[in-house]
Design a protein around this nucleic acid. Structure first.
Lengths: 242, 242
DNA sequence: CGGATTCTTGACTACGGTCAACGGAAGTGG
DNA sequence: CCACTTCCGTTGACCGTAGTCAAGAATCCG
């Protein structure tokens, strides 16, 4: 029994059981529909109190936030399977904006159903919490990167993480994957200047570790890259058995 | 009807309803007991798969993580009301360690009951997710701080956040509160060196904005401090109405 | 074609890191 | 009681990573 919602963490089957008939019906109701957006489309705005939540089904996006002085911080890149809008749903306000960077397909949920959803589908509620915990885990790592890693270490770390995410999603072919962001995006994600980011990327290319041109990221030596980035190349986080 | 667990987000009353008799009974069962620890005691270790979760009832602690090269990053400071161990509960592994910095009282929960808890108490499950979202929100802000703020901005931001948290918890008396951490802790939280942190704190003291000696934080001019830290002095996050 | 956006490279600068030394406080042990 | 150690905070001198400024090339687009 397949749903249309591949990659949607709230529609996929549980590890040990498939959805019951009623469950499926409810999820259909909870799911308002699918949304397709073009590159550059804002999906949720920082500070907004949007009535919708989404899961990314395909395509890539970016989360960022702006300080009052105009500086921009990229929080993370959005991959298929990511949940968008949790903060609006439970806090009533987004702490960052989300924007599509490629053509994206999104599964749309209605926030007004969220509480009902939580009450009647504890297994899916658990999924949401799981996603939140994964994000929290990632942000902790990102924090350590900005705080403790040098530019070359930070960039290596970022490329490794992106590449691993791509691997686990099947986006990698022959050691390369689409990564349609700008150097400014990466710079803003790592708290580096554009210029320094550019020069550091050049170093990695020189050393034949990784290259990233025209939106294509190629990783030639994941091992050393991970070593420079002070990360392990271990398996990504799996959903636990419940 | 008061519980012993003041500040515990999972025992407090809901905004609109108090706990039912059954609910209370279950919470008593879910709650394994209270734990009291002395300063310096590790509560959860990074990478561990502990069978317990906690909520902080009183006292202060610190979350940190270590890179493989030995560098240390402080993730956040633990205040009363914080939830400890979500990552272990849903991911099976902590992404950071938690250590007590003062005498602490903790409410202990049993992880094996977590799933049951989620199923039978959607309202409390929602609380857990709410806490996760708050943490995620905070980490996004911290990320922006490390990435985009200068040393003096970052330190101002941190002091404002701590002070605000203290205010909302009633830990502030006459513009001052206990903040029993070291300059190294703050430095590691903000990705600054100890020396530079020290010198920057001295500047804030010179300018009569805030002082922090012997574990006592005094804030003399919250307005300007917030301005330097590029933060607003708005109200802290409240639990939404459900 | 002009304008916008991104990437690239060079020259200069500065914020913040590193090293080092010292003082005070608190704990330890002979 | 007093050496001895450890931890924390403080200050000065020096230096390097990364930021800023600036200019040019490549690409895309109206």
């Amino acid at each position: 029994m397949t749903t249309q919602c591949q990659h949607c963490p709230l529609h996929r089957k549980n590890l040990f059981k498939t959805m019951s008939r009623e469950e499926l019906e409810f999820m259909q109701k909870f799911k308002v529909g699918e949304l397709t957006v073009e590159p550059g489309t804002p999906i949720l705005m920082e500070g907004s109190n949007a009535p919708q939540m989404y899961t990314a089904l395909s395509g890539l996006g970016i989360r960022d936030t702006s300080l009052k002085n105009g500086e921009r911080q990229v929080i993370s890149f959005v991959f298929p399977g990511d949940f968008i809008g949790l903060q609006a749903a439970v806090l009533g306000e987004m702490g960052h904006s989300i924007e599509a960077r490629t053509h994206m397909r999104l599964c749309v949920f209605d926030r007004s159903e969220f509480w009902h959803f939580f009450r009647t589908h504890p297994s899916r509620a658990f999924d949401v919490t799981w996603l939140a915990a994964v994000e929290e885990h990632f942000l902790g790592e990102a924090l350590a990167t900005l705080g403790q890693r040098s530019a070359i270490q930070a960039i290596s770390w970022a490329l490794v993480r992106v590449y691993q995410r791509g691997l686990s999603l099947g986006l990698v072919t022959q050691s390369q994957m689409a990564f349609p962001f700008t150097q400014r995006d990466l710079a803003d994600a790592l708290g580096l200047s554009l210029v320094h980011t550019n020069k550091t990327l050049a170093k990695l290319k020189d050393r034949q570790l990784a290259s990233w041109n025209d939106g294509i990221l190629k990783v030639h030596d994941l091992e050393t890259l991970a070593e420079i980035g002070i990360t392990s190349v271990d398996t990504p986080m799996e959903r636990p058995l419940m």
